[in-house]
Design a binder for these strands. Sequence first.
RNA 1: GGUGAGAUGGGUGAGUGGCCGAAACCAACAGUUUGCUAAACUGUCGUACCUCAAAAGGGUACCGAGGGUUCGAAUCCCUCUCUCACCGCCA
Length: 423
Amino acid sequence: MLEITYLRSHADDVKARLAKKNFAELNLVDEILAADEKRRHIQKQLDDNLAQQNLMAKEIGDLFKQGKKEEAEQKKSKTAALKEESKQLDQQLAQVEEEQKHLLVRLPNLPHSSVPAGKSAEDNEVVKQHGEIPQLHNGAKPHWEIAEQYGLFDLELGVKITGAGFPVYKGKGARLQRALVSFFLDKAIEAGYTEIIPPHLVNEHSAFGTGQLPDKEGQMYHVTADGFYLIPTAEVPVTNIVRDEILEEKKLPIKFAAYSPCFRREAGSYGKDVRGLNRVHQFEKVEIVQIAHPDKSYEVLEEMVKHVEGLLQLLELPYRILRLCGGDMSFGSALTYDFEVYSTAQKRWLEVSSVSNFETFQSNRMKTRFKDENKKTRLVHTLNGSALALPRIVAGLLENHQTESGVQIPTALRPYTGFDTIS
RNA sequence: GGUGAGAUGGGUGAGUGGCCGAAACCAACAGUUUGCUAAACUGUCGUACCUCAAAAGGGUACCGAGGGUUCGAAUCCCUCUCUCACCGCCA
């Protein structure tokens, strides 16, 4: 959610930057400003009214104390009209406030100046590419065939138990999952993150705080009996740790890392795009979150990018980093780097991580602030990224490290798996 | 699921209709003292919105949330939520 104070003084800048994000409803900005003006006008009237009422109440009290009962009664009779007026103003205020907020939450975050212009994934900027794409033997297979050959996961079984998109991992496939989670968490802890095990269901306040509600309601599983949502990412519960908090400046940045399963309803997409582990409803992920000082958040973003790169290098996977263009960025992000691993057998890039700076977009919703050196209360910046999401990493490992005699586990991961090859 | 108690500022906790945005203590911050540390002392010390060019100043609201009674509510009434304790059930 954009800050209304910024909007008031920089309306043209806001419009220009929203346009870069291919946001069509620029008239919303003017509607918001109109509502804001109306709101302030009503608030002023109401405040003045209430001030007058307070004054009168005080005078009546004094008169009673002095024993001037008649005067007091006389004055009392004059308060009714004022009260009625205040009541109506109060209702108007509540209405216009709601209207304003309703409009405001529909505005996406403003893109950072370095975000390339563009409409779709085609226009994303490749910032870096690293690692050799391996030359595979003739019988090289996509990961779902490898998984079947070695009994690593079973999608049919998941259909029986739950439905499509809920894989059942087995044997070395399951152990590989557990190994990757431990490996990623240990690396995060080495990098100074505090490990968190969050709830896997959140209430609607939390879902609103990070921006999943009200727009993306359909992407989450909703437990209607209790009003909870299954988390689509640990970002939601973990970032909400600091909701409604005023933090100490010297405690920034706050670094959290969390493993959680992630649940996504994911409507759309067909065919080979969703084969195997390319796209599933439940998957495992280690997420890193930082709550940063607004002046330092882009340094923090770079640090997080480096961290994710380090993981991919240790896993010996060919990857590239994209800076997402305005049209492909998420609603709440100011700058996003996507990490893609090359799927050698599928001959395409798979997104394995997305690292974003949300600036004040989430903190404004969550009311997460800190006191700066001048004792001014300011909103923090929030950042998060996958480090990393498992299913496509598993796909990448299986496909890129396959040999005719089996799949080689990267050296760094072997202490965690307890085996060197899958065969 | 049953019964009981409770929800006040960063923390503890006082406050049963006007003198309460709220005592006191602790913590925090600034300063005085001091060779240094500690102690002691003094001061500051909630948030949001409105007003103001800005600061100062002023106004309004907020004592879990929402309604109500009243000229006036932290205080009285209603509804809801949550927390704690004990019992039952369960991992």
